[in-house]
């Protein structure tokens, strides 16, 4: 079973700027930046909305949400059961490559 310590390795993945792993009640389980708590609600809320897209799109479960930003520090949100993972991308990295790296990492934990 994956632990918070496993997720701390996320920060070393190329392209990851900041990350936060949040429980579905908003409690931050793992992070690598000081202001993670301020984003916890958004990560959980948007993750829940994305989970609910399954009701509207033929049962499709989403892989990730990407919010593009002018700064290039796009935000990615992934659902992990009772937890939600938020990633703030490094401005120079490719968003598709990063999303693929994160999914590979997450598959490696299960």
């Amino acid at each position: 079973m994956a632990t918070a310590k496993d997720f701390s390795r996320l920060g070393s993945i190329e392209g990851v700027g900041q990350f936060l792993l949040v429980r579905n009640d908003g409690h931050v389980v793992s992070e690598n930046f000081a202001d993670a708590v301020s984003l916890s609600s958004i990560v959980v809320s948007s993750g829940k909305y994305c989970d609910s897209f399954a009701e509207n799109l033929g049962g499709r479960r989403y892989l990730h949400l990407c919010v593009e930003r002018m700064s290039g520090e796009n935000i990615l949100v992934f659902s992990l059961g009772r937890y939600y993972l938020g990633i703030i991308k490094h401005p120079d990295s490719d968003p598709q490559v990063l999303a693929g790296s994160i999914l590979t990492f997450l598959k490696g934990l299960s």
């Binding site: 958004i42 499709r60 892989l63 949400l65 919010v67 593009e68 930003r69 002018m70 999303a99």
Partner: peptide, 20 residues
């Protein structure tokens, strides 16, 4: 989703939700 992100980030652009 947009209203929540735009409160925190003032430079949000397009959104993408990826399914299989």
């Amino acid at each position: 989703i947009f209203s929540q992100f735009s409160v925190h980030f003032h430079d949000t652009g397009n959104f993408r939700v990826t399914f299989k």
